[in-house]
Design a protein around this nucleic acid. Structure first.
Lengths: 219, 219
DNA sequence: AATTGATTTAATCATTTGATTAAAATTTTT
DNA sequence: AAAAATTTTAATCAAATGATTAAATCAATT
């Protein structure tokens, strides 16, 4: 029966069980607040096994962290370089990709933000490797459209801040947002689905709204 | 000399020194990653003093947390109830208040978000005590303006998500945003100052852009 | 100056926690 | 089936850490 079980149930390897448990706990509670014993228990294995497979808590964390980060950044890097799509199409794809991804991994963004704050240099290499948005096709398009008078010229900083702020922030601020707007989990998900359609519309509105001149010093 | 020093230099009390050190470290590194010994060292006092004044790490943390949270939420609660100002004025005031406040306390939002995730129930009471935005004057105004056809009707959830996302998120995502847009600290601050003017304009654009009808199931 | 109360320190405790070790159990290979 | 390699466990170690204690110092009051 044990052999049959091995073959039929196709139980995931111990290493994978540990990684899954570690991902869950690290992502939820952060490095310092996660105990190796908790990971072991969550994975249904002995504490020593964790160190047998991964040498140390830190090494295990590093692995999880990098996998998380890669996944997170891929959402943007795939679309931002595509030379065949229009500005509007790119925005739509990015927003949809992020909302879908974060609906499945709601704890990720806060985890990433914490990790980056605690260790900016380690992330640096990874970002530069995966995406250099400043040289992306999307930003070139925006610059050209701005010069051609087709949209209101925008600084890349503001554009990114708006795109990411409207798309990712609701997941980061979910608990506050829910309480403040009196919305339950189900409703929250529904709203986020709506935002797939709305955020691109709003970003377009922003890009086509003329900016009033800055008021001068005279009254 | 010791008496003169006491009077002239007006050295802050030990209790205040501990609280200041605790606020700095807790806000920067979170509860679990902060050692009571580090707080003591940062405050220039002995470890035992910390427990003498505050009984325990947890008690000290609770105090800091609540003070932080109150400060954070005040930025919105003051303006959101004002019955004399227009929608546009309220938005402008809220955005300016938050950007000014977070420029001085850049670590706060991430700290708050972490704390809320880790302990939603404790925050609940505080939120309900300080603000119930759902009954705020601002949302009433938005609802009325929507019915009167003066703006595109918006759901409070989306409005809050956009306002907060565009205003607070840049501070939370500062490290990522800076790296991705290749912006240094000084430039970042300048951009955030710009956003005091821009975000209200953009929010207005969002509120006045008609939403295209949802495409039906037919092709 | 002496007494009293508040503040501060050094030393120590007890628990938690990451990590290791040696042995047992299991699986794979011969 | 025996031997070898791999995987798993129980027990234990050492360091870190939150907390306590008893004594020393300082400040205020008499």
């Amino acid at each position: 029966m044990s052999k049959a079980k091995k073959i039929e149930e196709k139980e995931e390897s111990t290493e994978e069980k540990i990684k899954a448990a570690a991902k869950k706990l690290f992502t939820q509670k952060g490095f310092a607040a996660t105990r190796t014993r908790d990971i072991a228990e969550e994975a249904g294995i002995n504490l020593a096994l964790l160190n047998y497979y991964f040498r140390s808590k830190q090494k295990l964390y590093d692995i999880i962290m990098m996998e998380n980060f890669r996944q997170f950044i891929q959402g943007i890097s795939v679309n931002v370089y595509d030379e065949k799509t229009s500005i509007q199409e790119k925005i739509e794809k990015i927003v949809i990709a992020y909302i879908d991804f974060l609906t499945l991994n709601p704890h990720l963004p806060l985890f990433i933000l914490n990790e980056i704050k605690g260790n900016p240099s380690r992330i640096a290499a990874q970002v530069n490797e995966d995406v250099s948005p400043m040289r992306s096709h999307l930003l070139k398009q925006l610059e050209e459209a701005g010069k051609a008078g087709k949209i209101t010229p925008v600084d890349p900083f503001h554009f990114m801040a708006n795109l990411v702020g409207m798309t990712i922030f609701p997941f980061v601020g979910k608990p506050i947002l829910q309480r403040v707007t009196n919305v339950n989990d189900e409703q929250f998900s529904a709203y986020m689905q709506e935002r797939k359609r709305l955020v691109p519309i709003w970003l377009k509105a922003i890009l086509t709204t003329p900016l009033p001149p800055i008021p001068g010093p005279e009254d």
